[in-house]
């Protein structure tokens, strides 16, 4: 009895502190036809959940490009929830299959950038799964709380890496690869060869890493002209690999070489007129 009372008092004491406790900011992209409707039903059924998710309605989860998600993480979002219809139930027939592929790329880029991929979550919620929606939001909010506030705002180096991931997500190569991924698996390439999913994923992952590193070189050399050695040290990438990336970026006219001291060449990103 006495213990219970003490416990209750202890809890009470915690409350004011609890009120000022950090609350994560979570964006929820919900598709109009299933997950948004599921969230509506959740409300109608009065299932309660934490107040952290701010929903943005989109017609289909397939609308969410990697760029949108990565820019929001760069801007300091603590978590992002993407909600779509169950596979094969998409209002737009195949939309969510593409969402699935894109989410994989986003997570890979988050990992490369050093942001916990667990901050991004994809869930299928049908219009009839009100209770499921409340469970997902509760669980995801807990998960994000455990991860703590996004470090992007306080850590400039991490922010640079996040921007680089965002940049990589907008490159022709990655967008084209992920856009064609499903088609290559299901209907095959122009020669009618169907590609194996694991092989294709390996290929995409390698391309993702390359594009991320190139994008990071651009981000870093936007700040100031840097030498290959310096870039390699900051990025923790072998200098020969950095140089290879720089060769590609120079071919694309995205980076320029400078000789400030007449000895070590340094590189600076060309901000306008870059052709991808």
């Amino acid at each position: 009895m006495a213990e219970n009372v003490q416990h209750a008092i202890a809890q009470k004491k915690d409350e004011p502190a609890g009120a000022n406790e950090w609350e994560p900011k979570i964006i929820g992209f919900l598709c109009n036809w299933c997950s948004y409707a599921g969230a509506d039903l959740c409300g109608v059924s009065r299932y309660q959940y934490p107040t952290n998710v701010r929903a943005v309605r989109v017609m289909c989860s397939t609308r969410i490009s990697p760029h949108i998600v990565l820019e929001l993480f760069t801007a300091g979002a603590d978590g992002i929830l993407v909600g779509g219809c169950h596979l094969n139930d998409c209002h737009y027939i195949t939309g969510n299959f593409y969402t699935e592929k894109r989410l994989r790329l986003m997570k890979k880029l988050l990992e490369d950038a050093g942001i916990e991929p667990q901050r991004l979550r994809l869930e299928w919620v049908s219009a009839s799964e009100g209770e499921k929606f409340s469970k997902i939001v509760t669980e995801f909010t807990e998960q994000v709380k455990k991860l703590g506030p996004s470090k992007v705002k306080k850590d400039a180096a991490l922010k640079t890496r996040a921007s680089a991931a965002d940049g990589a997500s907008q490159t022709f190569r990655l967008r084209a690869l992920v856009g064609k991924e499903l088609g290559l698996e299901k209907t095959g390439n122009v020669y009618g060869q169907k590609l194996d999913q694991t092989e294709l994923e390996k290929l995409i992952d390698a391309a993702t890493k390359d594009e991320f590193e190139r994008s990071l070189i651009l981000e870093l050399s936007k700040q100031k002209a840097r030498s290959v050695k310096e870039l390699g040290q900051i990025m923790d990438v072998p200098t020969d690999k950095v140089l290879r990336h720089i060769v590609v970026l120079r071919q694309k006219n995205m980076i320029a070489m400078e000789h400030p001291d007449g000895l070590t060449p340094t590189y600076k990103a060309i901000e306008i007129g870059g052709e991808q």
């Binding site: 017609m59 490009s65 856009g179």
Partner: peptide, 8 residues
């Protein structure tokens, strides 16, 4: 639906 937009 926006699939093309997110893909392009």
């Amino acid at each position: 639906c926006g699939c093309c937009g997110a893909t392009c």
